[in-house]
Simulated assay, not measured.
Amino acid sequence: MRSAAEKTWQPSSVPCVTATPKKEAHGRTRTLPSFLEALAAWIDDADGWYGNTGRELPPGGDWTFFARALQAATMYE
């Protein structure tokens, strides 16, 4: 028998990255390797993003930097 929490659980609206290709709404296929590639590319370009937004790039990174990188990788090409 399932609990009340299991019955009311709804999938998150956060995009999911899987090892199996998944078509996104705009037709792009997203796989784990492509996500990791986008993550690395955004981190390489992060100084530009920070400069364009008037923020200072954290010298050793921090959790906010990591969160921004993960979120950006879901959209970065």
Rank of each mutant, 00 (worst) to 15 (best):
K23P: 04
G51W: 14
P15H: 14
D62C: 06
A4G: 03
A73V: 13
R68D: 06
F35G: 03
E56H: 02
A72R: 13
G54H: 01
M1N: 09
A19Y: 04
D44E: 09
A67L: 13
Q71V: 14
R2P: 15
A40H: 08
A4M: 13
Y50K: 05
P59N: 01
I43E: 11
S3R: 09
T29H: 05
T31A: 04
S13H: 07
A40C: 10
W49I: 00
P33L: 02
H26K: 13
L70M: 06
A19S: 11
L32S: 01
P58N: 03
T74E: 13
A73Q: 12
A25W: 09
R55L: 13
E6K: 08
R2Q: 14
R30S: 07
L70R: 02
F66I: 11
P15D: 07
F66A: 11
G48D: 12
P15A: 12
P59G: 00
S34Q: 02
S12I: 05
R68V: 08
E37H: 13
A38D: 10
Y76S: 09
L57W: 05
F65I: 03
M75V: 07
S34K: 11
S3E: 02
P59H: 01
S3L: 14
Y50E: 08
P33W: 01
A67C: 08
L39D: 03
A40W: 10
A69K: 00
L32A: 12
H26G: 06
G27H: 08
W42V: 12
P11V: 05
E37W: 09
R55F: 09
G51D: 08
Y76N: 11
D62Q: 13
L32M: 14
V17L: 03
T53C: 08
R55D: 07
R28T: 15
S13W: 02
A46P: 04
S3Y: 02
E37R: 13
G27F: 11
K22I: 06
T20E: 12
G48A: 06
E37Y: 10
D47S: 10
A25E: 15
Y50N: 02
E56M: 03
F65N: 06
T74C: 11
R30L: 15
A46W: 01
D44Y: 06
K23V: 14
G60H: 06
R30F: 10
K23N: 11
G27V: 15
R2S: 11
L70D: 00
A5T: 08
A19G: 14
R68M: 03
T53R: 05
S12P: 05
Y50Q: 04
A73K: 10
C16Y: 08
A4P: 00
Y76E: 05
T64Y: 11
W42E: 04
G61W: 03
T29L: 13
M75P: 01
A72S: 15
D45K: 06
A72C: 06
T18C: 12
K22Q: 15
R55M: 09
